[in-house]
Nucleic acid binder design. Structure first.
Lengths: 200, 200
DNA sequence: TAAAGAGGTCACTAGGTCAG
DNA sequence: CTGACCTAGTGACCTCTTTA
């Protein structure tokens, strides 16, 4: 099946801490929907599977089936092909210009959308490193309002200087789509909600 | 069960999974997990599956049709019946405007009574998604008593934020009728359509 | 048989912790 | 304050058992 095949394994920096787990590579599944105001490159696919690189996967040799999945087309009103195949073009790896790259083994490393560091997972709706994850968490937990940017509010946020300007870092977090609920679904829906509700 | 009475085919998100059957059309949600979430609307994929490395699935002939699955944006959950059809003959659903809707093929998708996500089946007496099913199972197995709601104990439980307040989520589970032996309670609820506020 | 639900598993993340 | 590490859940997927 296509989905399981080609896609590279996505390697996160680590993050999980199960003692036995090889921890090297999982794969991500991303909700794929975040609408990102700034950099609209989405993750395109998300296929995930369990076996990590070295996981023997003791349980059950049974192969799981291909599992077609459909997104609900409500907005576009198009129907859904109920036949299995949905043309989910999984163009995975191919097109992310900057937030992921593949490595020799075929694995793929995802980068933090905020600062470009190695992502440790999919946090608050985007792939993010531990640092930006923690920063964002703190920002939303206590309702921190950072002091104004001393420059033009457009500081470049990269790993090396991500701590220089909290204001711009937080702004970047939001602009790439971080949110408590994991995605900007809300805004997206609001935009379309007219069409949707009008329909019914 | 009564719900099958309606004309439409009821499509669950998945749930059945006979080992060999190719049929499983699983749906992903996003990470939801927690997070997760996933995007209702775009067509991009979000397919996920866990099976180990590329297993093409032996293609057995059994051919149960792959179950299409739709994402539904919970924000608009107040009205879901797309196409005004609402042939939902499902007893309970009748009064709840939001627990099912039909799709093009005539199938019908049921929604989780707790959070409005796509239901994966009838669990513990109500239609529930995998998440709420698992949550309720854990809650009753180990006798978890969740810590108090930090708000007014009336948190809205929808897919996006269902993990925010366990107390309210569990309360919602009970209030919609989930119970270890679902059936009886379910019927009971039909009779007294009033949602009893089980107060744990 | 197949289909459905109960319960189990475990990859994965939100949130907590605390040395630096 | 930061971020690497940890823990407690979460939920997608699975197996087993029961029912039609």
């Amino acid at each position: 099946m296509d989905n399981s095949s080609g896609a590279g394994v996505i390697l996160y920096a680590c993050s999980s801490s199960s003692p036995d787990s090889p921890s090297s590579g999982y794969q991500t599944h991303s909700p794929s929907s975040q609408s990102q105001p700034s950099s609209p490159e989405e993750i395109s696919s998300d296929l995930q599977h369990r076996s990590t690189s070295s996981d023997p996967n003791p349980t059950t040799g049974t192969s799981s089936s291909p599992k077609p999945v459909f997104q609900f087309p409500e907005l576009s009103s198009t129907h859904v092909t109920s036949s299995g195949q949905s043309a989910v073009s999984q163009s995975l790896t191919g097109r992310r210009s900057c937030s992921a790259f593949t490595i020799g083994t075929g694995g793929m490393v995802l980068l933090c959308k905020v600062c470009g560091d190695i992502a440790s997972g999919f946090h608050y709706g985007v792939h993010a490193c531990e640092g930006c994850k923690g920063f964002f968490r703190r920002s939303i937990q206590q309702n921190i309002s950072y002091k104004m940017c001393v420059k033009n509010e457009n500081c470049l946020i990269v790993r090396m200087n991500r701590n220089r300007c909290q204001h711009c870092r937080f702004k970047k977090c939001l602009s790439v789509g971080m949110s408590r609920d994991g995605q900007n679904l809300y805004n997206t829906l609001i935009n379309h909600s007219v069409a949707f509700t009008a329909h019914e």
